[in-house]
Amino acid sequence: MVLGLAFAVAAMVLNCVAGLLQSDATTRTTRRRPLALQPRFILGLFVDGLAWVCTVVALRFLPVFAVQAILGGSIALTALAVRWIWGTRLSVLDRVAIGGCVVGLVLIAGAAGVDRPEGAGTAADVVLGISLGVLAAVTIVLYNSRLAWLLALVAGLGFGGTSLAVRSVHIGPDGLDVVALLAQPATYMLVGFWFVGIVTFARALSRGDLSVVTAVFTVTEVVVPGLVAIGLLGDRVRDGWIAPFVVGLVLAAAGVVALAGSSTQRKGQWQR
């Protein structure tokens, strides 16, 4: 369990760094050098990859909602980094909402059971496959949308889906078997969810404030797949922690709603 916590914290820090790099890259795009060719965006993808590896390791030891909640600490890290590096100013409402998100995610993480998570069944593959198809269609529809919070929400669902797909992959007692890995639907769904997440996250960053986008993205990435994992993958809430878990969900969700309608979000631009 300690090893899982260590890798989850490492993934949180790396996610924050990747978000900062990718967000800065969106401000440097030109017709001759689009976002996909920006060095900082490419570096951000590399850091994202490192974060993903850390997340995969953490998911082998902890429930989905516990790992995702720890990753939620990137909300606070990002808000502090944005203010320190670029001098971005958030409204009082934004600060309270981000604080509510952080407190909510801490409660969710604390509610995680200590049992090692079990593997997934065929039903999980079916549900994830349908979900991926729906998200892919929504991504196409919203690609040109100017609503950063909505794009961030879809991105959160996409990256959250990667965590569920990781848990759905079966690894035998003899360790990693590449042939067996490539034969599993969850392996390809993992790639699909990641692609949806990275496309919509990049679009959200180009249209909204990094702190707000990160908060909406992170809470969505934590809450939705965490609840799905409880019902679909057998993750457990610690005995006596149902009430704190519910309070955490309410606080995190309320923070996202407040951020989605904030003045910073409506302006949809950096305040440097």
Rank of each mutant, 00 (worst) to 15 (best):
V2D: 14
A8Y: 06
A8M: 11
V9E: 05
A10S: 15
Q22N: 09
D24K: 12
D24S: 14
A25S: 07
T26S: 10
R31A: 15
P34C: 11
L35F: 07
L35P: 06
I42R: 14
I42E: 10
L43M: 15
G44S: 05
G44E: 10
G44P: 07
T55L: 14
T55N: 15
R60S: 15
V64I: 13
V64W: 12
V67T: 14
L71I: 12
I75F: 07
L77I: 05
L80Q: 10
V82L: 08
G87L: 01
T88G: 05
T88N: 05
L93E: 11
D94H: 01
G99H: 04
V102M: 10
G104V: 08
I108G: 03
G110P: 01
G110R: 06
G113N: 07
G113M: 07
P117K: 04
E118C: 05
A123E: 11
A124P: 01
V127G: 03
G129H: 02
G133D: 06
L135V: 06
L135H: 03
L135W: 12
A137D: 00
N144Y: 13
L150N: 02
A152L: 09
A152Y: 09
L153K: 01
V154H: 04
V154F: 02
G156E: 07
S163Q: 09
S163L: 08
V166M: 12
V166P: 00
R167P: 02
H170G: 08
H170P: 03
G172D: 07
D174A: 14
L176R: 02
V178Q: 05
A180K: 13
P185F: 13
Y188Q: 11
Y188V: 12
L190P: 01
V191Q: 10
F193M: 09
F195D: 00
V196H: 00
S206P: 01
L210V: 14
T214L: 10
A215M: 06
A215T: 07
A215Q: 02
A215Y: 05
V219C: 06
E221L: 15
E221K: 14
G226F: 08
G226A: 10
I230G: 04
G231W: 13
L232Q: 11
V237S: 07
R238N: 04
R238F: 11
A243E: 09
G248S: 07
G255T: 12
V256N: 00
A258K: 04
L259M: 13
G261I: 13
G261A: 14
Q265A: 15
Q265L: 03
R266G: 10
